[in-house]
């Protein structure tokens, strides 16, 4: 097995996203993570495949020097599933935008999660249709003014995290385009997770939805408006790491360490490996102004994977079978001889 560097995963194609697009940093994180993925899994890079749908982010496979499939709108999750089931030894990375995965591809998205096929889904969420030049998406906030909603949208958005957890997804993480190291950490965790790993990357669309996530990424506020969750660590955040999350009855509450006798011990410890969805669902749902937005791996639990079950069933049936060739098949069951 070869060892790789970032360079091995860069294709010779010029990246054609707009200057300042949030997609660049996610691409960089992926190119930096894959050498580690190959090393950890003991695979060569030809076993890595990147599959995308349609939209700005779905151009990503062209920028990777791996096997790549830039498919059709909404279908990348099921095309990736077909690849993984056909060849379970592949490391499959599926790229999708908020429109691609949650609007036209919503059905394939939830069914990939239901099956828990071992693929890694990178969901680029900029809350807008960029490639078609600025229409609202299923994650656009209520009231968003776009070309197709000149008076503001009158429909509620999806929160991808709630959707994944609501479908009993086994892995959900959230990254942010400005946090390169965190994004790499998330991708590596996704690669290690056996099952459908959904990574939501909050990305900026500099042209049609500039500042899509500014309230989270602006240097001045990022520490107070986001919380990075890590397994076994206290749920602390804020510039001074003096704020924490506690349970108040059935709800989460933000507390300040040292105020009203609150100590660090009172603060919740993150456990993404807990099968019970309750707390993880609340964490995934958090939003400002009352709560920080949760980043990092929110849920990561083991479960049966579809591709493994398919292969195991084939093996089991084959071992017990009396028919091992087409000639034998043709002669099986009722036959008669004409003499």
């Amino acid at each position: 097995m070869a060892t790789y560097t970032l360079k091995d995963f860069k294709s010779d194609q010029e990246v054609r996203w707009c200057a300042g697009c949030g997609d660049y940093s996610v691409l960089a994180a992926l190119q930096r993570t894959l050498p580690k993925v190959c090393e950890e899994k003991g695979i060569d890079k030809e076993k890595v495949v990147v599959v995308s749908g349609i939209g700005c982010s779905s151009r990503l496979p062209y920028y990777m020097d791996t096997y790549g499939f830039h498919s059709i709108h909404g279908r990348a999750a099921i095309i990736a599933t077909g690849m993984k089931v056909a060849s379970p030894d592949l490391s499959v990375w599926q790229i999708s935008g908020d429109g691609d995965a949650l609007a036209i591809g919503g059905n394939h998205f939830i069914h990939a999660i239901r099956r828990n096929v071992d693929i890694n889904i990178l969901l680029f969420n900029n809350r807008i249709y960029g490639m078609t030049k600025g229409q609202y998406s299923p994650t656009s906030k209520f009231g968003t003014v776009t070309k197709t909603s000149p008076y503001g949208t009158v429909e509620e958005p999806f929160n991808p995290g709630s959707l994944v957890l609501g479908a009993k997804g086994t892995f959900f993480a959230r990254g942010l385009d400005t946090k390169l190291a965190l994004n790499e950490e998330i991708m590596l965790a996704a690669s290690r997770h056996e099952g459908t790993s959904v990574m939501e990357f909050l990305t900026n669309c500099v042209i049609f939805n500039n500042g899509a996530h500014a309230e989270l990424s602006d240097r001045a506020v990022t520490d107070d408006h986001t919380i990075v969750l890590r397994a076994g660590e206290k749920m602390l955040f804020g510039k001074e790491r003096d704020k924490g999350l506690v349970l108040d009855g059935w709800k989460l509450k933000v507390v300040r360490i040292g105020v009203d006798g609150v100590t660090e011990d009172d603060v919740l410890t993150h456990n993404p490996h807990e099968d019970n969805l309750g707390l993880q669902m609340m964490l995934a749902d958090m939003k400002g102004p009352d709560f920080p937005v949760a980043l990092g791996v929110i849920r990561d639990v083991p479960a049966r994977t579809y591709d493994h079950e398919v292969a195991a069933q084939v093996e089991k049936v084959t071992a017990a079978a009396r028919v091992h060739s087409v000639d034998e098949l043709l002669h099986s069951g009722s036959t008669w001889e004409l003499k």
Binding site: F69, R75, G82, M83, A86, H108, H111
Partner: peptide
Amino acid sequence: MQTEDEIAGICSAIGASFA
């Protein structure tokens, strides 16, 4: 693979073909 819909049927097959 019994897929979630007709589109998924052919798309999973296209993925398998690429593999």
